[in-house]
Design a protein around this nucleic acid. Structure first.
Lengths: 136, 136
DNA sequence: GCAACTATATATAATGG
DNA sequence: TCCATTATATATAGTTG
C-alpha cells in the first residue's frame, strides 16, 4: 500500500512476507485497541504465525479469554449460510475462490511438516499489548 | 484521523461514536483479512457492540472457534515447554498441530463462504487467496 | 440515521544502512 | 535480520444531501 500497490495475495517471498507480517500485525493490534477505546466496545484479535511462538493477542490473554467465553455461547452460522445461499453472485464468487483454495491446499501440504516443527522449536512468550487490559 | 486528528479516547457523543464504530469496524475486518491472506496466517477478530445483535467476527464463526480452541491450549504449552523431555514435547506438539490442520481443512468451506460475503457485501476488495489453510 | 464525498491522518511497501 | 526513512496507498473525521 505504498511505494507500490500490493496485490492482495499470499506473498511467496519469505523475507518479504515476514516483513509485511510484522508491520501489519502491529498495525492491526493498534486498530483493535483504537476501536475498543474510541467506541467502548469489547473486542479482541488473535494471530498465529510461525514467527511468534505464542499467538499474538489483543488486549491481553485474560481479556481475550473473556471475549472468547462470550463468543462460545453465540450460534450464528446458520444465519450466515442462509444469507449466502440466497445470492447467486456470491455463489459464483465462492466457486472461483474454491479453485484458489485447492491450489493453496496443495502448497500447504508440502509445508506442514516443516511448519509443525518450526512451531515446536520456536522461542519465548510474546504478547501484543501486555499492559493494557483493553476495552472501554 | 482525518479532517482532524482525533483524540484517542471514548467518544461521548452517541451518534459520532456510532458512526466511527461502523467505519472502523469495517476497516478492522479488512485488515484482519488482508493480514491472513498476505501472510498465510491464522487470525481472527471479534467485536461486541450495542449496535450489532451478534458479535462481528472474522473470518467465520467456526473459523473463530478454531482459533479459540487453539488459544485455550496455550497455557498448557507454556508448562510443557519448561519440561525437560524435548523429544516428547516435540512429538506431542506435532501431533496436536497436525490435528488442528485437519480441522482447518475441513473448515475451509465455511471460511471461504464468510470471506466471500465480506468481499461482496462489504465492498470492492478483491482477494487473490481468500480461504487459506493457515497454520504456517 | 445513512451514503457519498473530500481533505487529511495513518499505514505501509520499498529502500538504504 | 532489524531499524529508519520516505513516498504512496489507505483509512477515516467531518461534512453534505
Amino acid at each position: 500500500m505504498t511505494r507500490k500497490k500490493v496485490k492482495l495475495a499470499y506473498i511467496y517471498n519469505d523475507s518479504a512476507r515476514r516483513a509485511t507480517y510484522k508491520k501489519r500485525k502491529k498495525g492491526l493490534m493498534k486498530k483493535v485497541s483504537e476501536l475498543s477505546t474510541l467506541c467502548g466496545v469489547d473486542a479482541c484479535a488473535i494471530v498465529y504465525s510461525p514467527y511468534d511462538a505464542q499467538p499474538e493477542v489483543w488486549p491481553s490473554p485474560s481479556g481475550v479469554q473473556r471475549v472468547l467465553d462470550r463468543f462460545r455461547t453465540v450460534p450464528q452460522m446458520d444465519q450466515l449460510k442462509k444469507m449466502v445461499n440466497q445470492d447467486g453472485f456470491l455463489r459464483q464468487r465462492i466457486t472461483k475462490t474454491c479453485d484458489q483454495l485447492k491450489r493453496q491446499r496443495k502448497d500447504n501440504r508440502e509445508k506442514e511438516v516443516t511448519q509443525a516443527m518450526f512451531q515446536c522449536l520456536g522461542g519465548g512468550v510474546s504478547f501484543g499489548q501486555p499492559a493494557h487490559d483493553g476495552l472501554e
